[in-house]
Design a protein around this nucleic acid. Structure first.
Lengths: 225, 225
DNA sequence: TTAAATTGTTAGATTAGTCTAACTTTTTAG
DNA sequence: CTAAAAAGTTAGACTAATCTAACAATTTAA
């Protein structure tokens, strides 16, 4: 029974949280330090120090005294798996269960640790295998691979190309209500018909039906792919 | 920080599992012993012994050396709260997410520990505030109160009374398919029109529409209220 | 370039949850 | 009624995850 988990690849909830933090940090900084992790998880450096030694033994990261910390491929894959579960859960709570976007994060932090492929695959299916969460962040697929493209702002778009709405950067009620009022929701098709040079506003065609004008601010807050 | 949880009423996942086991055992036996708990959770008696001392300190159960163990009102309330979350989750996984009844239990064992009233209240709402799970077991309400009546078997029913299907005792695919084929699902209305003395089969009216005959076996497996 | 500040490491303690082993009390069967 | 079996208890050890406190290495700035 001792050190069973090294053989089974089993991982504790706490270890999952370290991996997730490690992955997030790897996107933000070149070199991940013990302090970065301690700050991001709000625990002491000494605690981090002992934990990374354990994770290194499990081959989830590479670590040498006083050097920067790096996830291994195995560690990265596990982190992406948790991230996938987190993002799918957030989308599910919001789209299927109708919870507010500000409410879903804390619940998703708990549900992301549920061990059941069945459960998350079904969520994925019910959501139509989404590639991005409403923040525009990519959702890793079941194999832990990230989509190559990240969603971009509509304000970066070009005329006459078909875009699909995948998320928004502004989550205020007022903005979401505005989107509602023009008939926009995740998955809507947007085609830019014209761009006004003087104020960067755009004439757009929505879902091949209604035509309207979006200000630069609106365009910057719409994530498309 | 020391003994914080005694003040906050916070409870660990493990403690929740003890409470749940205690409650289940209290329905099965008069006197709950250390051994009962050890067997039901598959841990050693010595472990149970130390844990019940902790739970007693937290006023979740009453314990004296060599005496039977009893949940306090507070402990019972917490146990019912977990039970509510478990049963609501099972129903949700099955009815909303379309998972098979054999698959939902293990997932529900994990999700029942999620801390979020919002989440479970929303599930409750989406399910239409169900009073019974598909096993016919009552679901405690948000205040931890159990419905007074437990579902009974249709085979115990009387002629011309309106019954509502709340669950089944047999969860085999074949039986569930049969129910499907006659148009029965949770919530369906059943009225017994006649009972045959010689084989205890019943002529029944379903949803005020179709009339059919159920064998005694079928009636015994239908839970109604 | 060296002293101060920051960051990292180690040692040792604590708590939750578990175990084994030794011992005690209660229950049960002859 | 008593001896054996079953159940219960205690003591002591272990792991995971955390902490504090002391000390070491590295980085930064005067």
């Amino acid at each position: 029974m001792l050190k069973d988990d090294i053989f089974t690849g089993m991982i504790t909830l706490t270890e999952e949280n370290y991996l997730k933090a490690l992955y997030r940090l790897s996107l933000e900084t070149e070199e991940i330090s013990v302090k970065d992790i301690a700050d991001s998880l709000d625990i002491k450096m000494s605690t981090v120090n002992s934990m990374i030694k354990r994770l290194a033994e499990k081959k989830l990261l590479r670590y040498e005294k006083y050097k920067a910390i790096e996830l291994t491929e195995k560690g990265k894959k596990m982190a992406l798996h948790i991230l996938r579960k987190h993002r799918l859960t957030e989308l599910f709570l919001s789209k299927v269960m109708g919870l507010g976007w500000e409410e879903v994060h804390d619940i998703a932090e708990q549900i992301e640790h549920i061990q059941s492929d069945l459960f998350f695959d079904r969520i994925d299916e019910m959501l139509g295998h989404p590639k991005f969460d409403p923040h525009g962040e990519p959702i890793p697929d079941a194999n832990g691979k990230l989509p190559v493209f990240k969603a971009t702002q509509l304000s970066e778009g070009v005329i006459n190309k078909k875009y699909k709405l995948t998320g928004v950067l502004n989550h205020e009620t007022a903005f979401l209500k505005f989107l509602d009022s023009v008939g926009l929701s995740i998955g809507s098709v947007i085609v830019i018909k014209d761009i006004q040079d003087f104020d960067r506003s755009m004439s757009v065609l929505l879902n091949n039906k209604s035509k309207t004008i979006f200000s630069q601010t609106v365009c910057e807050n719409l994530l498309v792919v």
